[in-house]
């Protein structure tokens, strides 16, 4: 065992060439991910999802990824060949997307997809794969795995679909899980259940979790460390339990603009965006 973090990112840029010049979606972001739960928060367009995708090198041309350092367990993934990346994706790093409807193949049963996902990364027999898939479905709190195994994606509910996605992503035992808004398409009561499952699995298996969300409160509850992004840069980073001491006006604005059920206010606070935030250098979230 080395002490190298699971993920080490230094000065990451994601650029898109457009007709009107180069657009920088992510501008010099640095962070590390250990065996912890790291929350990445920001509004739409802040570059949070792009950061997640850049780590898996899922940015298509005309997008470009640049970084001083992009290492996974000490292995450079910026210059790794595409075949190695395919091994890593789904094998050591998995990603859960927002809407399970678009991530599951509609013409394959849940079971087939799970087995497929496992056999793509490990040499196991069909029987063994099936046994592990059923065990995994059980782990994501699906009551009747045998039945669900035979269902097609359109026959399951949104919450169940997302749990199946989680099962599929965790089946090859990855070290890092990137969850991009995993619950925003779900109802509140189902949200909690899904988050609890992710939380439990990540803890039990000692994985690193990168939780990308627009919901600061939710992230604060489920993560150890929070990174707050604005316009492609990190404006603030802190421990989740120290969020109340956050100082950056953007963070405070995000916190106070949410209508609170228990503490009603006459008017919600509105973010006054300071152009300086955009220009201030990115804060490093390396540890």
């Amino acid at each position: 065992m080395t002490d190298a973090p699971l993920l080490d990112v230094e000065n990451l840029w994601v650029r898109f060439r457009t007709r009107s010049g180069v657009f920088d979606a992510v501008r010099g972001v640095s962070f590390t991910l250990g065996k912890e739960r790291l929350g990445i928060v920001g509004e739409s367009g802040s570059g949070k999802s792009m950061t997640g995708r850049a780590i898996l090198r899922l940015i298509r041309p005309p997008g470009m990824i640049e970084a001083d350092k992009l290492e996974m367990h000490g292995e450079d993934i910026l210059s790794a060949p595409e075949s190695r990346m395919r091994q890593l994706r789904g094998g050591r790093v998995s990603m859960i997307m927002q809407d399970p409807k678009f991530s599951l193949n509609p013409v394959m049963t849940v079971g087939q997809q799970l087995v497929e996902a496992l056999r793509a990364h490990e040499k196991v027999s069909r029987g063994e794969a099936r046994r592990r898939a059923l065990a995994m479905l059980d782990e994501v709190a699906i009551r009747d795995p045998e039945r669900v195994y035979e269902l097609y994606p359109h026959e399951v509910s949104g919450g169940m679909g997302q749990r199946i996605m989680i099962a599929m992503m965790l089946l090859p035992s990855p070290e890092i899980l990137i969850a991009d808004e995993p619950t925003s398409a779900l109802d509140v009561s189902v949200q909690l259940q899904v988050l609890d499952i992710i939380d439990k699995l990540v803890r039990d298996r000692g994985m690193g979790l990168m939780f990308i969300s627009h919901d600061l409160n939710l992230v604060a509850k489920f993560c150890d460390r929070i990174v707050i992004m604005y316009a492609g840069r990190i404006v603030e980073t802190c421990k989740a339990d120290e969020l109340r001491n956050a100082r950056h006006p953007y963070t405070l604005g995000l916190l106070n603009s949410v209508p609170d059920l228990e503490h009603p206010r006459e008017r919600l606070e509105v973010l006054k965006r300071d152009p300086e935030w955009r220009e201030a250098p990115s804060v490093s979230a390396r540890q």
């Binding site: 509004e43 509140v188 995000l254 949410v258 059920l261 008017r267 509105v270």
Partner: peptide, 30 residues
């Protein structure tokens, strides 16, 4: 969320300015 706050404030203002009655659907109790 920050834009949501702006729109909610706007709706509160408009309601008093124009004497509006609202019927609102939401999944967000807040």
């Amino acid at each position: 969320v920050s834009v949501q706050a702006e729109i909610l404030n706007l709706l509160v203002d408009l309601r008093s300015e124009h004497d509006l009655t609202y019927i609102m659907v939401s999944h967000d109790l807040g």
